[in-house]
Write a protein that binds this DNA or RNA. Structure first.
Lengths: 232, 232
DNA sequence: GTCATCATGTAAGCCGTTACATGATTGC
DNA sequence: GCAATCATGTAACGGCTTACATGATGAC
């Protein structure tokens, strides 16, 4: 899960850990504030199994300490730009780059429908965020699977709520609000699905392409966002 | 967390494990399908520390197998109604009842503002579902804390998204939808807060009272739900 | 010179999951 | 008789959090 997120971000560009965290938080809103305690170990794991490569940017001299990871990442010692560059050359900032193996893993993770039945909101959000790397049919399946799931939940909730419902006002308000949210999620998905269907099949071939081509198709569809008031 | 949910449900009536799971899923929509692997151990924990008491309803004879848990739950063997009752006397269905100690723990858990800063959606939902057991000021604080949190997240997201935003259409749609959802959550909270403020302070005293009295107050406030279309 | 921010990491633990094992009751 | 549902539990593990430890850089 976290691995998928990291690989997805690295598909676009090289990044260091701290920056990955920031992107996840500010840009995607996924994993709001993922902790370092899970981010760095994840990066280590990815590095260990060859999915990413680190280009150390340490201020230290080559033969220096380079503690525990020394024997593992030592072979990349040649690549460091020893504080030569101008732009805010911070401390031992390890910049990671995705490898071919990493790209392969990313694709596998992204399109894996192993957990087909039960996909939580975060998992779906993550996949959608990187949907541009999916082939069109897989993208459509992702959306439809999620839609079916939400629709089913809604049916079940309605069935359970239909009978009188002796909930107190707080619980009821919660349930109703949740239901409304789910309904909105579903109609949002319907818009996405419609846009996806409207896209000519031949535009994006099986090989994932980073963006641009698809932009027009999606954007000429009306998302009709009205600026709903929030001020207080 | 799970403990809080269980105690909250047991405040209302005696229940057995399987039924607790169902309520959580169908009624509150929280913990959608909590697994038995966490439910039953939680019940055991609660029983071990005296927060709940079990009234065994087993169909087995007293001296029977009663495998691994024998030494732990054996002392309640006296209380079983040996398939005497009429209504669908199922198998060894352990019905749990909350104790005074359990009620004390429930109050503590429910009103604990220890994790004040970061409260996730589920934790908030759970507390709101049992908000009727909170004294009015605590209830208001709960709502306002949540509101503040969402508002802040929104501000941060806007700040991060403001600059151009070179997100691809999928990621952008996701971010926009999330933002809208958060806005709706906030205005929902605003309605709840307003209703809470409108309630005369003397209606509900410090001691939590199960419902009824408060019903009228909350319901005369307009929640204005329009039946938003979902059919397909 | 000291404080906030950037930056990386380890250790312990919580809270939940899946998978497995068992068995009673009900309906066909 | 057999399957579906109800019902309870254990074992192993997963994924993320908090708390801790460290240190560089830049701003005031």
């Amino acid at each position: 899960m976290l691995e998928l997120a990291i690989l997805g971000l690295l598909e676009d560009q090289e990044l260091h850990g701290y920056e990955i965290r920031k992107r996840l938080r500010d840009e995607l809103g996924l994993f709001s504030n993922i902790s370092f305690g899970s981010l760095y170990p994840a990066l280590s794991r990815l590095e260990r199994c060859g999915a990413v490569a680190a280009i150390a940017e340490t201020g230290e001299v080559a033969g220096g300490p380079v503690p525990m990871t020394g024997s593992l990442s030592g072979e990349r010692a040649a690549l460091r730009s020893r504080r030569a560059s101008p732009a805010r050359g911070r401390r031992g900032r390890k910049v990671y780059r995705i490898t071919d193996e990493g790209r392969r893993q990313f694709t596998t993770l992204l399109s894996s429908e192993s957990n087909a039945g039960s996909e939580d909101a975060r998992s779906f959000g993550l996949r959608l965020a990187f949907a541009r790397y999916l082939p069109p049919q897989a993208r459509l399946r992702l959306l439809e699977r999620r839609r079916a799931q939400l629709a089913q939940r809604l049916t079940e909730t309605r069935a359970a709520t239909a009978d009188g419902s002796r909930l107190d006002p707080y619980a009821r308000s919660l349930v109703e609000h949740t239901t409304e949210s789910t309904e909105r999620d579903i109609s949002w998905l319907d818009r996405l699905i419609a846009a996806e269907r409207a896209r000519p099949a031949h535009v994006a071939p099986a090989t994932p392409v980073p963006g641009r081509t698809e932009q027009t198709e999606l954007q000429q569809t009306e998302w009709h966002r009205e600026p709903n008031g929030l001020q207080r």
